[in-house]
């Protein structure tokens, strides 16, 4: 069952395109409401399953982070050939990929919205023996360890959490646990992206929860401090966990995202209107 979606305006000229990337072991389903909101505001929105995710859950064991990068780069290039204004956004692993696109296409990306950026696995939900993760990930044990998806499933809102829990149990919207191979590739991707943060000059909006259960606010702080963008903003949420697009402050996240996009779109239009 494909969970990919493309929301494209046929009736009006879109203001631009927004490329969305989902999180590790997730699917575009987690971005759907966000995508619909952006679409209603006049943008064409694209979200596809990342390599290693989708119908065949075994694929996550064979995936390499370069495949995620190639996927993100190619999707961005395709959109850039069609649209003048292209924004990239993502959640968790998707946020790291959005940053990678910002590093590679620094002059072409109009803006980056990075949600729950996962550069480090240091959230409070991880077990006390989380210090063993790098060791397990670097050895053959990475094929044996699956960190079980468990409470609170990245969601503080209990009602939403129970719905997501049921969907996860069915296996319809994502995987029910985090394979260590996925963590391993995420950590390698994170190291590559951290190394090149200085090359990001694009306007950026970072949104991160203070109580993120998978990755602490350190990840967002590292990005904020090390990028070269002069136009950068970090918003810390106080009443959400990792899945900021489904939690208590989702409307706020939606509003801030569209405000950010519109602000930069308007700025560009204004620049074009300034007489020579």
């Amino acid at each position: 069952m494909s969970l990919d979606f493309i929301f494209k305006h046929d009736d009006i000229e879109p203001k631009g395109a927004i490329l969305l990337f989902h999180g590790l072991t997730g699917s575009p389903f987690e971005l759907k409401k966000y995508g619909q909101f952006l679409f209603k505001n006049g943008y064409d929105v694209y979200a596809e399953c990342l390599p290693g995710h989708g119908d065949n859950f075994e694929e996550i064991y064979t995936i390499k982070y370069q495949q995620w990068l190639d996927f993100a780069y190619s999707r961005f290039k395709n959109l850039k050939s069609e649209y003048e204004d292209v924004y990239v956004s993502g959640l968790c692993l998707g946020a790291v990929l959005a940053l990678a696109v910002g590093e590679k296409f620094k002059d072409e990306v109009n803006g980056i919205i990075s949600l729950s950026t996962t550069l480090y696995l240091d959230g409070w939900r991880l077990p006390w023996y989380k210090f063993l993760i790098p060791l397990a990930a670097s050895t053959i044990l990475r094929f044996y360890y699956n960190y079980p998806e468990c409470e609170p499933h990245g969601i503080k809102n209990e009602k939403t959490r129970s719905i997501v829990k049921k969907l996860l149990a069915k296996g319809d919207v994502g995987m029910n646990d985090f394979p260590m191979t996925g963590f391993y590739e995420l950590l390698k991707l994170s190291a590559v992206v951290r190394k090149n943060l200085k090359s990001i000059i694009t306007p950026i909006l970072l949104i991160h929860s203070l109580e993120d259960d998978l990755t602490s606010v350190k990840s967002a702080n590292v990005v904020y401090k090390n990028i070269s963008s002069s136009d950068k903003n970090l918003i810390i949420l106080k009443n959400s966990y990792h899945m900021v697009l489904y939690d208590n402050e989702k409307e706020f996240v939606f509003d801030e995202s569209i405000k950010f996009i519109e602000a930069h779109l308007n700025k560009k239009i204004k620049e074009e209107l300034v007489p020579c």
């Binding site: 077990p127 023996y129 063993l132 060791l135 397990a136 050895t139 044990l141 044996y144 360890y145 699956n146 960190y147 079980p148 468990c150 646990d177």
Partner: peptide, 17 residues
């Protein structure tokens, strides 16, 4: 696969450390 298996693999990891 159960959480107990994850704990067992964690024990192997600790031993490997």
């Amino acid at each position: 696969r159960t959480p107990a298996i994850s704990v067992f693999v964690s024990a192997i990891t600790g031993t490997m450390l």
